[in-house]
């Protein structure tokens, strides 16, 4: 019951946050130099034609009126259309967001798998071999740009070793029938082993790139909090009571580490769901980040607005889920 009330209140906050985000994004996109009208009609066009286009796009109205109109449409679920692709924005997003979600999820999984176990082991003993390795890897991870790592991986695994597919996004010979829009899931549902294999091979390098880069701060956080937990008085007390090492690490220390780590995970996932522009560019990944940036450079307002709002929604929802998760991990939040 308390949880239901809490969720409703949080969703209310989410609506308020979205309103503020939409207002800021709207103002920023309109204030920025650049006008889609001349990109559409061309600089040589007649002023009359340009004006007609401006009227059709509603750009002749005062900004506040444009905003109210946009908000009204948004309320009805209409995100507007992109003049660049000629499609309704919701259609474009539906075609691109699944690719971003898949990449984000696989990248997060990669990050989880390498950084959290290593962080736990490294945090157990300061200056041990695993601690040194962890510190070197996390230092490397936080200091390299992700697009650079992506290019190095392409060079090695595609260029030299030839075991990875070319960085051409998600081109498949046979696309499985669209059920969910998620290529990996659709291939699995279809039972199409070839398509699944191809889709997996294509996602490995970009997901590894992102997974390594976002795993670095995750590793640091895990290590730091594990270290802190192992030095805490409740762990000292558990040791003094003769509890086995295994229980001390897994039962006493780890849950206390998972609190900050899940928060960080949520932050990283929210960040990834908004689209990772550079990696999407390097791997020609047909995701939302690339779509948003292409739209910005052509003053295509509606997709930019939609991409920002989508990013904000996913961020806030991931945070909500994390807070609910904490509800189960951390008894202190329950009372």
């Amino acid at each position: 019951m308390a949880i239901a009330r809490y969720v409703v209140r949080r969703l209310g906050y989410l609506a308020i946050a979205l309103f503020i985000v939409s207002l800021i994004t709207f103002v920023v996109t309109r204030v920025l130099p650049g006008n889609p009208v001349y990109l559409i009609v061309g600089v040589q066009a007649d002023q009359a034609i340009a004006d007609a286009v401006a009227v059709r796009l509603g750009l002749d109205l005062p900004v506040q009126e444009q905003y109210l109109r946009y908000l009204g449409q948004l309320f009805l679920g209409d995100l507007g259309s992109s003049w660049r692709t000629g499609n309704p924005v919701s259609f474009d997003l539906a075609a691109r967001w699944p690719a971003t979600i898949e990449l984000a999820s696989v990248a997060l999984l990669v990050a989880l798998l390498w950084s959290i176990p290593l962080g736990i082991v490294a945090g157990l003993r300061e200056r041990s071999a695993s601690d040194r390795i962890a510190s070197a890897l996390s230092g490397f991870g936080v200091s390299i740009p992700e697009f650079w790592l992506g290019m190095v991986l392409i060079l090695v695994f595609f260029g030299i070793l030839g075991i990875a597919p070319p960085p051409l996004g998600r081109t498949l010979g046979d696309i499985p029938p669209v059920v969910t829009g998620f290529l990996l899931v659709d291939a699995l549902i279809d039972g199409d082993g070839t398509a699944l294999g191809a889709a997996l091979r294509q996602i490995v390098l970009p997901a590894t790139t992102l997974g390594f880069v976002i795993g670095a701060p995750l590793l640091r956080t895990t290590r730091t909090f594990m270290r802190e937990a192992m030095l805490s008085q409740y762990v000292r007390s558990a040791k003094a009571l003769g509890l086995p090492h295994r229980s001390i690490v897994l039962r006493h220390a780890l849950p206390n580490v998972l609190l900050p780590v899940t928060t960080m995970l949520a932050m990283l996932y929210g960040y990834l769901l908004g689209g990772t522009v550079l990696v999407e560019y390097v791997f020609a990944w047909p995701g939302i980040g690339k779509y948003a940036v292409d739209s910005i450079s052509s003053s295509d307002y509606a997709p930019v607005m939609a991409a920002v709002l989508l990013s904000a929604v996913s961020y806030l929802l991931v945070y909500l889920v994390t807070d609910l998760l904490h509800f189960f991990i951390d008894p202190r939040t329950r009372s």
């Binding site: 003094a240 206390n256 951390d330 008894p331």
Partner: peptide, 26 residues
């Protein structure tokens, strides 16, 4: 062997008992 003695033969109670109890376990 020490682990078998700790808690069973010799126990210790630290200063600040609140911090000696794990916040996430009953």
């Amino acid at each position: 062997r020490m682990r078998d003695i700790r808690g069973r033969r010799v126990a210790i109670m630290f200063q600040n008992p609140r911090a000696s109890l794990n916040p996430v376990l009953t």
